[in-house]
């Protein structure tokens, strides 16, 4: 009986990884946890930042000579736009607060007007009653109203004639 076995690169890769990963990991973790590693990292970081800082200065000086805006200058414009937007946001918030207050005030105003309306109705009613009692003897309801109406009409006519006379004088 013959048995053929094919070579499987992926299985081999996985096996190698699984068998060696923990050993590698432990060794690397040991190194990463040492103070000397942090010190070396700091040195590399310092050199990189020195190089980057130098590059930043060169670029800025070139842009200045070429009369072109630097990244900081463009960012400043963006900041101005953001500030305006912030103010808009503040205004929106204030409007929300004010809207609430205004609606309360309008409600109070409505109530006040209603009360005033009712009071005026009462005044008119009282006025009408007093006119009726002055001009007509108490007989029946019908003539009283007629008399009151007549006296109101007479007053209106007098007012109209007075206005006409004034206009004629002009």
């Amino acid at each position: 009986m013959t048995q053929t076995t094919s070579f499987d690169a992926f299985t081999m890769w996985k096996n190698v990884y699984e068998k060696t990963e923990s050993t590698w990991r432990d060794a690397i973790q040991d190194t990463l946890g040492k103070e000397s590693f942090a010190e070396s990292l700091g040195q590399i970081q310092s050199q990189y930042l020195q190089y980057q800082g130098f590059l930043n200065k060169i670029t800025e000086s070139y842009l200045k000579q070429a009369n072109m805006p630097s990244r900081d200058e463009i960012a400043n414009i963006a900041s101005l736009v953001i500030n305006v937007e912030s103010k808009m946001d503040d205004l929106e918030d204030q409007m929300d607060v004010n809207k609430f207050d205004t609606s309360k005030e309008i409600e109070q105003l409505k109530k006040g007007l209603n009360n005033l309306d009712k009071k005026l109705d009462k005044v008119i009613e009282l006025l009408a009653n007093s006119l009726v009692s002055q001009n007509t003897p108490k007989v029946t309801a019908g003539p009283i109203i007629t008399a009151a109406t007549n006296s109101t009409n007479a007053a209106t006519n007098a007012a109209t004639s007075a206005t006409s006379a004034a206009n004629a004088k002009k």
Partner: peptide, 15 residues
């Protein structure tokens, strides 16, 4: 490990 790498003595935070 962050505590080691970000050690004030070595990590150039401000820079």
């Amino acid at each position: 490990l962050y505590s080691n790498w970000l050690d004030k003595r070595y990590f150039q935070l401000d820079k």
